[in-house]
Design a protein around this nucleic acid. Structure first.
Lengths: 150, 150
DNA sequence: AAGATACTTCAACAATGGTTCAGGTTCGCT
DNA sequence: AGCGAACCTGAACCATTGTTGAAGTATCTT
């Protein structure tokens, strides 16, 4: 192996090896517009090295349950015409961190409600904040009309 | 409408109306073994009223991303022979809250790592704790071998 | 220039969590 | 007893996130 790996484009296999993401998934990401490649004269994909960062970003997002459609939206904020720099990445990462913070807060509220419910012998449908988060109780007879709001 | 709603079994439509969960989903839950019903002589479902709690439990779990297979496991901890009481529900809810706490902690760690990464201009693949959570860097040439561990 | 390896596309399949529809049956009310 | 609303099953379909395999092509190394 020479030093020729440097500054060269990556084949789909290279990208798979370095990212730990199977080629099949990478092709899928490309089909979905999350990453891009140029093609050789023989129709093979060649990725620029910054694609490695994009893939890293995608996988981290996936780990916390962000759907690819959403990841795509965020990646669209990166510049098209040039290789994204440190600032660009910091910007999209920050956006993403905020999203994560929201998710955490949501889960915490839910857990706190649940803790209360355990205290009150809950999941009692007609009183429980969890089961009845929108507080829309029925008024034709007892019991809630809906467990979950719109 | 008489007072006859009281103490009577619920049809699938009743359960749907009261829980806000479509009948199709309720039938699906039954197929998956998450809820049970008896059948009338004409083969229609009749649910006991505590099924409403089970459905509440299922939907709350779903809201935080717990897969039905897991919900099923937890519901299996409820007694079969009698209607679950307040204690029974408190027990399974507690179990479930612990699960939620784990999820929250996981997300928090992830966010903290990400915050660091923003500070360091990160997602730099070869250094980032997030992109390289198992700290398994390659040693044949620069760059990480994998972004995500097993 | 040959041969090994990696690449290409397309189609089918998988798991999760359901919805919708067709064709037929039952329930409850009058 | 009759009528309409609700119920039954089974199959097909939806989105998401990919994997697997077949048949054929390109690239790299020697």
């Amino acid at each position: 192996m020479t030093v020729s790996w440097q500054a060269r484009e990556l084949t789909v296999g290279d990208l798979a090896d370095r990212s730990g993401v199977p080629s099949s998934a990478l092709r899928f990401y490309e089909r979905q517009g999350l990453i891009r490649s140029r093609r050789t004269s023989g129709n093979q994909r060649r990725f620029t090295r910054d694609t490695l960062r994009r893939v890293a970003f995608i996988r981290v997002a996936q780990r916390v349950g962000i759907p690819l459609s959403r990841v795509k939206e965020v990646l669209a904020l990166l510049p098209e015409e040039r290789t994204p720099n440190r600032e660009d990445w910091a910007r999209v990462s920050a956006w993403w961190r905020d999203d994560l913070t929201d998710r955490i807060e949501h889960l915490q509220r839910l857990r706190d409600d649940l803790t209360e419910c355990i205290g009150c012998g809950c999941l009692s449908i007609d009183r429980c904040a969890l089961a009845n988060p929108c507080d829309t109780l029925g008024d034709e007879g007892p019991g809630a009309r809906r467990l979950l709001g719109p």
